[in-house]
Simulated assay, not measured.
Amino acid sequence: MASYYGARHHGRKTASGEPFNQHALTAAHRTLPFGARVRVTNLNNKKSVVVRINDRGPYAKGRIIDLSAQAARELNMIRAGVVPVRVERLE
C-alpha cells in the first residue's frame, strides 16, 4: 500500500538532507538507499511513475512507500489517499 504527502511537509528537510518538494517525483521508503529510482504502479488502474527515494518512511502499518503529491497525482490516487501498489527498483 502507498500513501502520499504534500503541502504540509513542503520545504521541510527530508532524511536525505534535501528539502521536500511536493512537485518533484520523489518518495520515502524505509530501507532503499537515497537516490534509488523505483517504478511505482497503482494496481487499481495500472498507472506507473518513476520516483527517486529521498526520505524515510512511511511509518503507518501496512504501507511500503510514501509518494510526493506530484507522484500521487500521476498515479491518480489523490482522492483515494492510499492504494495498493507494486514497487520495482530500477538499475
Rank of each mutant, 00 (worst) to 15 (best):
A72W: 07
K46M: 14
A69H: 15
G57T: 12
A27E: 01
P19H: 07
V50A: 09
A80D: 13
R30A: 03
L75Q: 08
R73N: 02
Q22K: 15
I64M: 13
A71Y: 04
D66N: 12
V51A: 01
E18S: 02
S48D: 05
V85C: 05
F20R: 00
Q22W: 07
Y4L: 06
V85W: 01
L43D: 06
T31Q: 14
A80Y: 01
G17P: 02
Q22T: 04
R37Y: 04
V51T: 05
L43G: 02
A2F: 08
P33G: 14
G81F: 09
T26F: 02
A72D: 08
P19R: 13
A60P: 08
R39I: 12
M1R: 12
R89W: 05
R8C: 01
R52G: 00
H29S: 05
R79E: 04
H10Y: 06
E18I: 12
F20I: 05
S68D: 11
V40R: 01
A28E: 08
A7V: 11
R12T: 08
T41R: 10
E91Q: 10
Y5M: 00
F20W: 09
G17H: 02
E91Y: 08
L43Y: 01
N76D: 15
K47Y: 02
G81H: 04
E91V: 11
A60T: 15
A80H: 09
V83I: 11
E88F: 05
L32H: 13
V83C: 13
V49L: 06
K47C: 06
K61T: 14
A60Q: 10
S48T: 14
I78D: 06
N44K: 11
S16K: 00
R37P: 01
L90A: 04
A72L: 07
S3L: 06
F20V: 10
S3I: 07
M77T: 07
G81D: 11
G57H: 06
A7C: 00
V83D: 09
I64Y: 05
A72E: 12
K61D: 11
R63T: 05
L25H: 08
V50F: 06
R89P: 10
K13Q: 10
R8A: 15
K61Q: 14
T41S: 03
K46R: 15
Q70W: 00
R30Q: 10
T41H: 05
Q70K: 15
I65G: 10
